[in-house]
Simulated scan of single mutants.
Amino acid sequence: MVLLTVLIHGTGMYGLARLLRIEAREEAEEHIHPMSLRGVSVTLILVLGLFALHGIEIWLYAFVYLLLGALPTLPDAVYFSAITYATTGYNDDALNESWRMVAAIEGVNGIILLGWSTAFFVSVVHRMGGSK
Rank of each mutant, 00 (worst) to 15 (best):
1 M>T: 06
2 V>F: 07
2 V>G: 12
4 L>W: 05
4 L>Y: 11
5 T>R: 06
6 V>C: 02
6 V>Y: 12
8 I>T: 02
8 I>L: 04
9 H>F: 03
10 G>T: 00
10 G>S: 04
11 T>N: 03
12 G>V: 03
13 M>G: 03
15 G>R: 00
15 G>F: 09
17 A>E: 14
17 A>R: 06
18 R>W: 11
19 L>C: 06
19 L>Y: 15
20 L>Y: 09
20 L>S: 06
21 R>D: 15
21 R>V: 10
25 R>E: 09
25 R>L: 15
26 E>L: 09
27 E>S: 11
28 A>F: 08
30 E>K: 15
34 P>L: 15
35 M>P: 15
35 M>I: 15
36 S>L: 04
37 L>V: 07
37 L>W: 06
42 V>A: 14
43 T>F: 09
44 L>M: 10
45 I>L: 11
47 V>I: 09
49 G>H: 13
49 G>W: 07
50 L>W: 09
52 A>R: 08
54 H>C: 04
55 G>M: 01
59 W>M: 12
60 L>H: 08
62 A>R: 01
62 A>P: 07
63 F>I: 12
65 Y>D: 13
66 L>D: 01
67 L>I: 15
70 A>V: 04
71 L>S: 05
71 L>P: 06
72 P>F: 04
73 T>W: 04
73 T>M: 06
74 L>Y: 05
77 A>V: 04
78 V>I: 10
79 Y>W: 14
80 F>M: 11
83 I>C: 03
84 T>L: 03
85 Y>F: 14
87 T>C: 12
88 T>I: 14
88 T>W: 10
89 G>M: 13
90 Y>W: 14
90 Y>K: 12
91 N>H: 12
91 N>C: 05
92 D>Q: 08
93 D>E: 13
95 L>T: 09
98 S>E: 12
101 M>I: 12
101 M>Q: 15
101 M>D: 11
102 V>T: 07
102 V>K: 04
104 A>W: 08
107 G>R: 04
109 N>K: 04
110 G>V: 03
110 G>R: 01
110 G>C: 02
112 I>F: 07
113 L>T: 03
115 G>M: 01
117 S>W: 00
121 F>E: 00
121 F>W: 08
122 V>E: 02
124 V>Y: 07
125 V>F: 07
127 R>I: 09
127 R>F: 13
129 G>S: 07
132 K>T: 15
132 K>P: 14
